[in-house]
C-alpha cells in the first residue's frame, strides 16, 4: 500500500465541459510515486482530456490538480513550464516534428531547456536514448520515413530526454499491430524501471493495461467507477459496464 506522502499527482473534483458536452464530472485520482496507473475507458470519455489538464494544455472548469506538490490551478507560465519539464507527455499520434530529423526531434527540447551542453553531451544523450528504445539506426531519418511503432518509440524517447519524473502516455498502443503493442508495453515497463518514473497510461486496450499497470482506474460517464489492481477491478467487477468492457476486450 502506498503511503500518503508518496503521491505525485492528486486530482480532486475536476470537472471539464466543452459547450454542452460534460466530459469530466468531478474526477478524483491519485498517482503514487513509482507506480504505473492505467486510466481505462471507451473513446470519448475524457481520458486524454484528463492528462491534458495535468500539463496545462487545457484548463479545468472546477476542481484542483496538484503535481509534485504544486497546485497547477493558478500557476504562472514560467512556473508551469518548470513543472512541465518534470512531466513527459507521449502523444497518441507521436507528434514528432515533421520538418526535423529524429536526431533534431530529440535534441530540440534538450537544447531549449538545458543550457551549456556540449555537442558531445547532446550526441551522447540522444544516441543513448535511441539505443534504449531500440532504434539507433533511425537517427538521421525523417518522421515520414518511420513506421507507426517507430514513431511511438521515438516520441517516448523525446519525452525521456528531459528525464521527467512523471510520464503520461496517451493511447500508446492505439493503431498498432499486436506485436508492436507488446514492444510498446515492454518499453513502458522498461521506462519505469530504468528512469524511475511514475506514469499514467491512457488506453482502452486491456492487454496494455494488464501488462503495464499497477493499478487501473475505469472512467465511465465522466467519473471513475473503479480504481484498484487489475484483478480487483475486472475479475471481481459487479458494475455491468465494467464487466462488459472487460468481456468485449478479451472476447476480441
Amino acid at each position: 500500500m502506498h503511503r500518503e506522502e508518496e503521491k505525485v499527482v492528486e486530482i480532486r473534483g475536476v470537472k471539464k465541459s466543452f459547450d454542452e458536452n460534460h466530459v469530466l464530472r468531478g474526477v478524483d485520482l491519485d498517482l503514487h510515486k513509482g507506480e504505473n496507473l492505467v486510466v481505462l475507458g471507451k473513446s470519448g470519455t475524457g481520458k486524454s482530456v484528463l492528462i491534458k489538464l495535468m500539463v496545462g494544455l487545457l484548463k479545468q472548469d472546477e476542481g484542483s490538480i496538484t503535481i509534485l506538490g504544486k497546485n497547477t490551478d493558478n500557476l504562472k507560465l514560467k512556473e508551469l513550464n518548470k513543472l512541465r519539464l518534470k512531466i513527459g507527455f507521449a502523444f497518441q499520434a507521436s507528434a514528432l516534428y515533421d520538418s526535423m530529423t529524429v536526431r533534431e526531434n530529440l535534441e530540440f527540447p534538450l537544447v531549449r531547456n538545458v543550457k551549456n551542453l556540449s555537442r558531445k553531451e547532446i550526441n551522447k544523450k540522444v544516441e543513448g536514448l535511441l539505443d534504449s528504445v531500440g532504434l539507433p539506426k533511425t537517427i538521421n531519418q525523417m518522421p515520414a520515413e518511420l513506421s507507426g511503432g517507430q514513431k511511438k518509440r521515438i516520441g517516448i524517447a523525446r519525452t525521456l530526454i528531459l528525464e521527467p519524473e512523471i510520464m503520461l502516455y496517451d493511447e500508446p498502443t492505439a493503431g498498432l499491430d499486436p506485436t508492436t503493442c507488446i514492444d510498446i508495453n515492454n518499453l513502458i515497463n522498461q521506462v519505469k524501471e530504468e528512469y524511475n518514473t511514475s506514469s499514467i497510461v491512457i488506453t482502452h486496450d486491456l492487454t496494455c493495461a494488464k501488462v503495464t499497470g499497477d493499478r487501473m482506474a475505469v472512467l465511465i460517464d465522466g467519473q471513475f467507477q473503479a480504481v484498484g489492481p487489475f484483478e480487483e477491478v475486472f475479475a471481481q467487477a459487479t458494475n455491468p459496464r465494467i464487466k462488459s468492457f472487460y468481456d468485449y476486450n478479451f472476447i476480441q
Partner: peptide, 20 residues
C-alpha cells in the same frame, strides 16, 4: 498549411509540454 498541420497533429502541443 504548415502551422495548421502542426496544430492538428499536436506538434504545437508537444512544444508547449516541453516548455518551448
Amino acid at each position: 498549411a504548415e502551422i495548421g498541420s502542426m496544430k492538428v497533429t499536436e506538434q504545437i502541443d508537444a512544444m508547449e509540454v516541453s516548455a518551448i
